[in-house]
Deep mutational scan, measured.
Amino acid sequence: KLLSSIEQACDICRLKKLKCSKEKPKCAKCLKNNWECRYSPKTKRSPLTRAHLTEVESRLERLE
């Protein structure tokens, strides 16, 4: 599967780190437990900047 097509777990399953069936409108866990089942939009991760990478590398060197 391509990364862009990976389905996201519902908010509660993601928060509780449960295996989500990803069914809509309610996944199996939410249906069974009568929880409100919501699927928040995916958040875009910002790409690493060179400055951040350099900072992490220098912190790693100090720890070694």
Rank of each mutant, 00 (worst) to 15 (best):
K22C: 00
K24S: 15
T43F: 08
A9E: 02
N33Q: 14
P25T: 07
P41A: 08
C10D: 00
R14K: 09
C27I: 02
A28D: 09
L48F: 06
K16R: 05
E36C: 13
W35L: 14
A9Q: 08
C27G: 01
P41K: 06
L2Q: 15
K24V: 15
S4H: 12
S4Q: 11
L63H: 04
N34G: 12
L48G: 07
L63I: 14
E61C: 14
P47S: 03
K42N: 09
L2E: 15
T43E: 15
R14Y: 07
K42L: 10
T54W: 08
A51M: 10
R62D: 00
Y39P: 00
L48V: 00
S21I: 01
C30S: 00
C37A: 07
R50H: 00
L31W: 14
L60S: 07
K24C: 11
I6H: 11
L3V: 12
K22A: 03
K42I: 08
C20W: 02
C20A: 00
K29F: 05
L18Q: 10
K16D: 03
L15T: 12
A28V: 14
L31G: 14
L53C: 10
K19S: 06
S40M: 04
S46A: 03
R14W: 04
L60N: 07
L3D: 15
H52G: 00
R59T: 04
W35T: 12
K22Y: 05
K24M: 15
E55M: 14
A28T: 12
N33C: 11
L2G: 15
R38K: 12
L18V: 03
D11S: 05
T49E: 01
D11Y: 06
T49M: 06
N34P: 02
S46K: 03
C27S: 08
S5P: 10
C13Y: 07
L15A: 13
P47G: 05
K24T: 15
I12W: 15
V56I: 05
K32Y: 07
L18G: 15
L3P: 10
C10K: 06
W35K: 13
I12V: 13
D11V: 08
L60H: 05
E55I: 09
S5I: 11
N33T: 08
C30F: 05
H52V: 00
I6G: 10
L63A: 03
E23N: 14
I6C: 13
P25I: 04
C10S: 00
L60R: 00
E64V: 10
T54C: 08
A28Q: 14
K16S: 00
K16I: 01
L53D: 03
E36L: 11
T49F: 04
T49S: 04
K22V: 07
N33E: 09
E23P: 05
K19R: 14
N34E: 15
Y39T: 06
A9R: 03
T49V: 07
P41F: 02
L18T: 07
L60P: 03
T43A: 13
L60V: 15
P47R: 07
C13S: 00
T43C: 12
P25E: 03
S40N: 03
T54H: 04
R59V: 04
D11A: 00
L15V: 12
D11R: 02
C10I: 00
R14D: 03
K24E: 13
L15S: 11
E64W: 06
K32Q: 10
A9P: 04
D11P: 02
K42E: 05
A9F: 01
S21G: 06
I12P: 12
C13K: 01
A51E: 04
K1I: 05
H52R: 07
R62L: 13
W35N: 12
P25Y: 02
E55S: 14
S21H: 03
R45F: 00
E61H: 14
S40V: 07
K19V: 05
R62C: 09
V56R: 02
Q8P: 09
P41W: 05
R59F: 03
L63P: 03
E36Y: 05
R14I: 00
S46V: 02
R38D: 10
K32F: 08
L60I: 08
A28S: 08
R50N: 01
R59W: 01
R45W: 02
R59E: 01
K26N: 15
L63Y: 08
K24F: 15
K22F: 05
T49H: 07
K32S: 09
K1Y: 11
E7W: 11
K24Q: 14
S58R: 10
K32C: 08
K1N: 14
C30Q: 01
K42T: 08
N33H: 11
T43N: 07
